[in-house]
Design a binder for these strands. Sequence first.
DNA 1: CGGGAGATTGACTGATCTCAACCCGGGTGG
DNA 2: CCACCCGGGTTGAGATCAGTCAATCTCCCG
Lengths: 235, 235
Amino acid sequence: MKYTQSFPAFNNCFQDTKSVFRHLSNEELELIPQEQAPDFYKRGEIIYSEGSRINGFYYVMKGIIKIYKTGFDGKEQIIRFAQAGDIMGFRSTISNELACTTSRAIEDSYICFVPGDIVKQFVKINGNFAMELLQIACKELGEANDYITDIAQKTVRERLAEVLIHLKMEFGLDNENFLQISLTREELANIVGTATESVIRLLSEFKQDKHIEIHGRRIKILNEKVLLKISNLPY
Amino acid sequence: MKYTQSFPAFNNCFQDTKSVFRHLSNEELELIPQEQAPDFYKRGEIIYSEGSRINGFYYVMKGIIKIYKTGFDGKEQIIRFAQAGDIMGFRSTISNELACTTSRAIEDSYICFVPGDIVKQFVKINGNFAMELLQIACKELGEANDYITDIAQKTVRERLAEVLIHLKMEFGLDNENFLQISLTREELANIVGTATESVIRLLSEFKQDKHIEIHGRRIKILNEKVLLKISNLPY
DNA sequence: CGGGAGATTGACTGATCTCAACCCGGGTGG
DNA sequence: CCACCCGGGTTGAGATCAGTCAATCTCCCG
């Protein structure tokens, strides 16, 4: 990928042919206030917090964000991740509610903000854009339903195997075939919905059994077939 | 409520001022094929099954439907309920995917079907309708996120208390202050995400402690405050 | 070199699941 | 009319998965 302007150029934000905004006309795109460059968030920084009013969309240009809820006892439950091309915060914006999740960069990230009023305008005047948003919401909904069933019915072992496979599919591998995404043991536990120690023990077991290889936070899947079997995934 | 025609009159289906279809003009409403009366489903009958192609919306006029996924070992996980005024099946329709849930009447129900093509048309030509659908999807999404966090982090006891409170809020009470909705112990277990026996034991405990009263499937909440406390619900 | 975050391991505990037996009421067929 | 069956509900005992607590280790950083 090559940028003729200093990266990241703001105009690129919404003109990507794969972005949610692809159905907007140039005139419509111009309605988005473009005074500022995309915001930079350093690894660890919060984009928005549970309970705050956000009133707008966050479009991720680059980086990886974890989106999580904080449970009763302060434990995080990671709901999903967002990466380049994804949007965040539309649920609260559309529902006119406070954010029900916290959003935190786990890699340095560039993010564009679009005010909620404008998005709502687009929904009303541009049917294709509305349909696009609906499809995104429905996709998330389907994933959430799967998630519910998994957590309710599968063992921690099954879920961890499944999460590893999902992380591979969602973020891919680096040039040494390690998972591209780097998570702490605690974060893994907060996806799976278990204790950190349980993740550690199970990862050790998978390593012992040669299903995976571990170098610190870097994880390589050695035998996806077995993991798939362990996870009881349908396909 | 009074019906001048024999109940249920089909025209009432979409003209209710509270229905999703309230933003449609009369001309638009006429696009919906209205040859048939709403479909009647007897308690226990399936409206659609996981894996089938449904391609349309089901609008519930009357009755209660349970919407569930079937897990790896055949155990049901109830995702949500639908009752009068709710729609079902829009996720698959919008996503052009097969149904990811099964939908079964737990009370005798009347349901209207609207073909998917027409709904998609409406999304594109009627911004208010699109927004309405988006809001429904976003509402479900928020609830699903809560659900995930609860199942991942709370104990069965906490979740059961929470479910009882939710059932009261969602379906209300009958004239003797029992929960309006009637579920088997197994169905309760399939909401909470636990074994039937666990639900039975915990219900007995709640009864012993005078938090609830039980007559077969009929449950009366005697002390909501305590249940609320047990559930660790935020409000 | 001290401090702190994250990772690991062991021991213990206990909530929850599974299995199995049994009960109860309603419906059915002989 | 009665015996039987069946789905749902209950209860008990035992097994176990997974969480908690605590100690230790390993880096990495200032």
